[in-house]
Design a protein around this nucleic acid. Sequence first.
RNA 1: CGGGGCGUAGCGCAGCCUGGUAGCGCAUCUGCUUUGGGAGCAGAGGGUCGCAGGUUCAAAUCCUGCCGCCCCGACCA
Length: 440
Amino acid sequence: MRLSRYFLPTLRETPREAEIVSHRLMLRAGMVRQQSAGIFSWLPLGLRVLNKINAIIREEQNRAGAAEILMPTIQSAELWRESGRYEAYGKEMLRIRDRHERDMLFGPTNEEMVTDIFRTYVRSYKDLPLNLYHIQWKFRDEIRPRFGTMRSREFLMKDAYSFDIDKDSARHAYNRMFVAYLRTFARMGLQAIPMQADTGPIGGDLSHEFIILASTGESEVFCDKAYLGFETPAENTDFEDRAGLQATVDAWTARYAATSEKHDEAAFAAIPDADKLSARGIEVGHIFYFGTKYSDPMKAVVTGPDGKEHPVHMGSYGIGPSRLVPAIIEASHDEAGVIWPDAIAPFHVALLNLKPGDSATDAACEKLYAELGAAGYDVLYDDREERPGAKFANADLIGLPWQVIVGPKSLADGKVEMKRRATGERELVALDDCLARLKA
RNA sequence: CGGGGCGUAGCGCAGCCUGGUAGCGCAUCUGCUUUGGGAGCAGAGGGUCGCAGGUUCAAAUCCUGCCGCCCCGACCA
């Protein structure tokens, strides 16, 4: 993409409303525009990141055996009356009415709807297990939205719903998502720690919040430092291996980790001081098992091997992509701007032509732009008539992993400069070696 | 919803107290000079001063009501 033809409205100054660093940088890097309290437009650069995040989520959900669907944002109140949540949900739910005066709502979550889909089609235990997920916009009319897309009213959520014949199978479904989540966050360059979470009225131990540590996080968290060195489950993990998955989950839940709501001072005190970690964190995922809470009232039942009807055991599993964007920025930035992890960077390379109009730098940039693009790299080519300083500052701000700097000085020796955004390291490489260096 | 703050050019702000021609910086446009870390000079464009009433000869400024946004708290992916 040529920057001269792109839409990247970066800001030199920070808009007043932005308090935390990720919000400031998302506005300055031209990623989002707030349209109303807690409601945002996603501009090209921000949308690219969001889509990268979604792509990773999809790959890992699919790998773990979930099937993608897409349910609507607008739902009928009918289903919610069936589950009893239409009355229970309160003001957080945006209630609307259509022209026929029917009660509708903008979905804050989809348990009812997915349960309705399930009960329509699935009758036999032989069709289980089943896990359906979608990535869709949700709306929760938060009392106070804040921190940009970190806590917005309209937000994107990946929500998966599992259906199983009994609790044991449901635990396996839970473990599949648990492991998928560990892989998902690790691929985004995040160290996510599963922490004990509130299970609400359902109870039990099957609920975890996935937390990443960040000084500006909203939650106070306490855990064993050992988690920071844990190994991510492998790509070839066998998700049908019940015992194997259980062992992985057991290992990841053996040590202490809890948010302030579930914090147990005594248990925390038992950890050696050197291993205690008390910090702030951002919740990026939440999984839980809720049994027959919806299948009972909504009559989602299957016939079991015994010939009798059984309400299905369900769980739901959420990840907030539109929250992950700022979460990743909170975890990865410096004074100058964002530092995107390679896997979710909106482009791989910023190609800076320091002297557009100079036949040598123009030719070198065109060659690199074509060559890197052909090799599968997304290149943002800064071909604007701007001074070098402005290009450097802009490139650092938007935080692409690599900067390939083409200026007359180094080009006189047939070289270009390659700068790694994360470390600031620069090296001069021959024009023809640029691609090889990227691959290395 | 309680407490606090703010709405003046795309962004950041001054002006308001003490009513009298709407300003500054950045950005934008034109020209010239510059060209390896957000250039210099000269010129130009851009405003329902959040909205609606009121007071006054006269309101960005004073009064009343409303709307929007931000921050702190209780609540949430």
